[in-house]
Design a protein around this nucleic acid. Structure first.
Lengths: 308, 308
DNA sequence: ATGCTCACGTGGTCAA
DNA sequence: TTGACCACGTGAGCAT
């Protein structure tokens, strides 16, 4: 292998060799590159067609393959170079061996670098195609990847606008007008007359009649309303691990049968909104009883979270 | 400037001049490059800030401008090159002129190409930053541009889900009849490509590769989609006592952290729609794994309900 | 021919 | 050191 001869015929340019290599490897052996690589890329393409339909993010096998192919082609090219220069070099062999190992390692790193970079590009394109797939056609006329994310911008704006509109319409249906402007904490606007509230400025509820609540502090915002044997519960609290599990378990043991449940998490605040059926053998039947029981339950859950 | 001397000390390689030039120009003479080009790029930047702020998808004006600027800067460079060639070459003058013109033009095109490409990259980054700016913080922890569009995928899904929910709620409020194009069973329209389905007419998925699913029958309609470590789960099943409790418990023990959960009950059919975060120590990471685990979990829950 | 887009290989840089 | 990310310049392909 005359590889080393080429590399060290001039010690001056430590880097330019790499460039010459890439030059010749990139230009003269073009068909070589497109042979060794095109197989790979077409395989990838096929793979993506099979997997991509179902969105499986398996990136590792292809990258390994790419590395192998890259090594194969590169060594071949370098051999070609070596023959031409072998006649001109007269260096001792020791240095050649040491430096050869060095070069090998550098080549190795280089190939992994190439593979990694290729992977990165591929993942990006996968994401782009996914993003494109879940947008309506009109937002992405040009398949251009800049246009895709441009269309995503518009689409997100549109969706947000849509959500805003719908929630506004829903809000205006409930006639909860006006008081949403100064709500600093999330979900605060969901509570009209909470039995328990963590907010200090407990306005709009001047004399809360839930005297039972005063014996223990509020662990969360809790609002309970009831019609016949159906109750609507709204709970806003800090999130904690397994909170939902314990809450559901507690309600279950309280003989409150969950019909609808909606939990929404924003940052570390979570809002539970549920409608439950008060079973016949349930011990707590009034709104205040339920609210108190909920407050105790959430207090226990919080304590649990503290300990763990 | 010793740059050109290096470039033309060998006439052998017709292309390598370009490469060596770009090498030295790109690496060693960093400040040089940033002298001649930076005027241009900064002008472009200003211009794009004016246009880009308004979201005008006009790629042509900027490109034209880039071309002009590229001409100016490139001619400068080429002049420098020409001087260097005069001293070392001994060719007749006619050819020199022709080739010089040729070289000039090629250099010209090259510079415009560079400028265009640079513009393209810049525009892409602008789009990315815009897209990032209008997403909540939690969707884009890592400022990575792959993560940005990954987060955008999640965000779009979440928004779409939200819209679907709101419109569905509005619809169901106005009319409770199941006239949605012949869907006999409720919630059937929520499933696009379920991994498990209780419906016999499993059309539109001719050869689903999830062979693991066939080993056991579907206990419910289950659809899992995933992006990064966020998964969206849709489950439709028959209602049974404490089903939700067991489901939440099961997900908890599977290290699937529930971010959003929505359960809706109609008659004896219940639809769970939840978005979960796949924790780092989770054993099931692929969509099929999760779907299979869900199917098993629901099967166990159903068996439990049978016995009690 | 020209413009535009993309994939590629590469060097620089920042953090673990 | 290593790995991840990014910007860069460059050649190819595909449209106008």
């Amino acid at each position: 292998m005359g590889l080393e001869a080429v590399v060290f015929q001039q010690d001056l340019f430590n880097y330019s060799n790499r460039y010459l290599y890439s030059l010749l490897g990139g230009n003269s052996s073009y068909e070589d590159k497109h042979f060794s690589h095109h197989n790979q890329t077409s395989d990838e393409a096929n793979n993506d067609f099979v997997n991509g339909g179902y969105w499986v993010s398996s990136s590792s096998p292809t990258s390994v393959e790419a590395t192998n192919n890259g090594n194969g082609s590169s060594s071949c090219v370098v051999d070609g170079l070596a023959v031409a220069v072998e006649t001109t070099s007269t260096r001792p062999k020791r240095r050649r061996l040491r430096t050869r190992k060095n070069k090998e390692e550098i080549e190795n790193q280089r190939m992994t670098h190439i593979a990694v970079e290729r992977n990165r590009r591929r993942q990006m394109n996968e994401y782009l195609s996914v993003l494109r797939s879940l947008m309506p056609e009109s937002y992405v006329q040009r398949g251009d990847q800049a246009s895709i994310i441009g269309g995503a911008i518009n689409f997100v704006k549109e969706l947000e606008h849509c959500v805003q509109l719908l929630t506004a319409k829903k809000e205006v249906k409930e006639r909860s007008d006006g008081s949403t402007s100064g709500c600093s904490s999330p979900f605060a606007e969901f509570f009209m007359f909470p039995q328990y509230s963590t907010r200090g400025d407990n306005n709009s509820i001047p004399v809360n009649e839930s005297m039972a609540a005063e014996t223990q502090p509020a662990t969360a915002d809790i609002e309970v309303t009831m019609v016949e044997n159906h109750a609507n519960l709204k709970i806003r609290s800090k999130n904690s691990p397994a909170q939902l599990l314990k809450l559901v378990s507690g309600l279950n043991s309280m003989r409150l049968n969950i019909l609808h449940l909606n939990v929404t998490t924003v940052d570390h605040t979570v809002l539970y909104s549920l409608s439950v059926q008060v079973e016949d053998d349930c011990k707590v039947t009034s709104v205040d009883d339920i609210a108190t029981a909920l407050n105790q339950l959430l207090g226990r859950i919080q304590e649990d979270a503290m300990l763990n």
